[in-house]
Design a protein around this nucleic acid. Structure first.
Ligand code: MN
Ligand code: MN
Ligand code: ZN
Ligand code: ZN
Lengths: 143, 143
DNA sequence: ATGCAAATGCGAATTATTCCTATTTGGAGG
DNA sequence: CCTCCAAATAGGAATAATTCGCATTTGCAT
């Protein structure tokens, strides 16, 4: 049972070879409802008996990000990176501190703010990080 | 020339002992115009011949944060933490990717957004991280 | 002044990630 | 299809930031 090769064009188009590992990671990311860590990916693929090493996971993710195929976010109060496929629209996340549930939010509330800030600060602004955290419905402390 | 002990009350009030290391760290943070890393603090204090170890720097910073005296921020594209004294007003930073210059911004653009999000999401929102980055005046690429 | 919980120092451990190098492999060209 | 080689991978060592464990020191209540 061969791993899908749905991503050959996507990869070759950017002068990237279509490999078992890259296809498998893309498949994982595409089918996941939430961003995944390098370790998540490593374990998921092992589970499916796809041979891969941690260094390859990191290298592939890096390549995907550099080529605009994936994007990285990092959560507050943890220092590991999460990855998801790049969405059409720039967005942020709402994260449960307890269970790590992660909702994709619609759009970005900072467009105007950033534009204005760029004018008054003299910086050329390249981007921003924004993550919102709290307790989800189920994890709310019941005091 | 003894290290100042201006912070004794501040510390004792929270059942924290006033130690040379804690006072020295508080002094560094207070006199710095920008947030400092654990290593910055360690080196600055060594420079001033104040005996301290890295683990103590981390432990003290942790204690200060837990007690609401300091606050931690972490920059995008780097995985070290920066610390500053807790300000009266919640705020964010504008950071130069190249030279690491860091401006404290006034206020927070997210108050309304967060309130609205809390209602419609069912989360109890505890906080958010927001850092804005780009190139400062002097570091702007000149194309 | 005394006693003891709290704080510190120092090195080892941990965690996430990157680097090194020998080996394998995708796919361009014949 | 073959061949070939640049690109990609495996596996382990290295790095960087941070945390831990434990023996020693110290602030401060009495
Ligand atoms: Mn998302
Ligand atoms: Mn600040
Ligand atoms: Zn945004
Ligand atoms: Zn804010």
């Amino acid at each position: 049972m061969p791993v899908k090769d749905n991503y050959k064009d996507l990869l070759n188009f950017r002068n990237l070879k279509s490999t078992k590992q890259r296809n498998a990671i893309l498949e994982e990311l595409e089918s996941s409802v939430r961003p995944l860590t390098a370790e998540d990916l490593f374990l998921n693929l092992k589970e499916k008996n796809i041979s891969i090493s941690m260094s390859t996971v990191y290298r592939v993710l890096d390549t995907l990000v550099k080529n605009g195929i994936a994007q990285q976010t990092s959560l507050p109060q943890t220092n590991k990176a999460f990855y998801e496929l790049k969405q059409k629209e720039h967005h942020h996340h709402l994260i449960c501190i307890k269970c790590e549930k992660m909702l994709h939010l619609d759009g970005c509330p900072l467009n105007d703010y950033v534009k204005q800030l760029e004018k008054q600060s003299g910086f050329s602004i390249e981007g921003h990080t924004l993550e919102i955290y709290g307790y989800c419905d189920k994890c709310k402390p019941e005091d």
